[in-house]
């Protein structure tokens, strides 16, 4: 069994006292490809932010293996589309972990950028200004940047938004290659359950609290989906404070 790269122990992430991820325990193994699924507001993006470290835990811990290189593609990127940059400039930002502030970009770096663009089907887009890209092309550009980052742990938050079916198929194939051939760990927030059943070995079903985590087909069975549907998306201002003594059933990772 592969060692864990990310370990959650009783992790609760919250906004202003309202939990968005509630008592999550489990581990992400090295080399796994996991889909994170759940309704709107079920804590998927929040979990990603927690792993990246943008959102500190309210209680519990989220431990990431030391020295791990991480790449994160947020759901709502903050890219300034009006900035005078070319596609290649945006993708080259992915060289930062390797070259940092002052390191020169060498020929092999430029080759890596070109290969990444080719990998997401954007050959010939190198010099296009980013304000001329369509929504899906922008998403693929950001995907290419993740490729360039050459990370061990890759977190993608709804990377298939606004991307056409053919490109989704290409990108999924890429993800599977990262995982199976290169041994990277990949976590993807996805909404398309059929896509998950078909392509993802593992899934984590969230409804604020974890509903199920394990083999994708088992996780996405009718019973679990029904359970996941029964959570209330809205915050309850009068909800009782969650005490450790309440002892509600904590879901443990199945495998």
């Amino acid at each position: 069994m592969q060692p864990a790269v990310v370990t959650f122990s009783d992790l609760t992430l919250s906004y202003g006292g309202h939990p968005a991820v509630h008592h999550l325990t489990g581990a992400v193994r090295r080399g796994s490809l996991t889909a994170v699924v759940g309704a709107n507001g079920s804590g998927k993006s929040t979990l990603m932010k927690g792993i990246v470290g943008i959102l500190p835990p309210m209680t519990g811990r989220c431990t990431v293996q030391r020295g791990l290189r991480m790449a994160y593609l947020p759901q709502q990127s903050e890219v300034d589309r009006s900035f005078p940059a070319r596609v290649i400039d945006l993708v080259s930002l992915g060289l930062w972990p390797k070259r940092g502030l002052l390191g020169r970009h060498r020929q092999d770096d430029r080759d890596a950028v070109r290969q990444a663009l080719s990998g997401v089907g954007l050959d010939g887009f190198e010099s296009r200004p980013i304000d001329s890209l369509s929504g899906g092309q922008m998403q693929r550009t950001l995907f290419a940047r993740v490729l360039v980052q050459n990370a061990d742990l890759i977190l993608l938050d709804e990377p298939f938004n606004a991307v056409d079916a053919r490109t989704v198929a290409d990108l999924v194939a890429l993800l599977k290659r990262w995982q199976s051939e290169e041994g990277r760990t990949v976590l993807v927030v996805v909404h398309d359950l059929d896509l998950v059943r078909e392509h993802f070995p593992e899934a984590l079903l969230l409804a604020r609290r974890p509903v199920a985590w394990g083999d994708a087909r088992d996780v996405l069975d009718a019973g679990n989906l029904l359970k996941a549907r029964q959570f209330h998306e809205a915050w309850d201002e009068t909800a009782p404070w969650c005490e450790p003594a309440h002892g509600h059933a904590h879901q443990e990772r199945a495998s």
């Binding site: 300034d80 900035f83 930062w96 940047r145």
Partner: peptide, 10 residues
Amino acid sequence: LDPLFLRSVS
């Protein structure tokens, strides 16, 4: 260009 990205790598 992308402040959130810079925060995630540096």
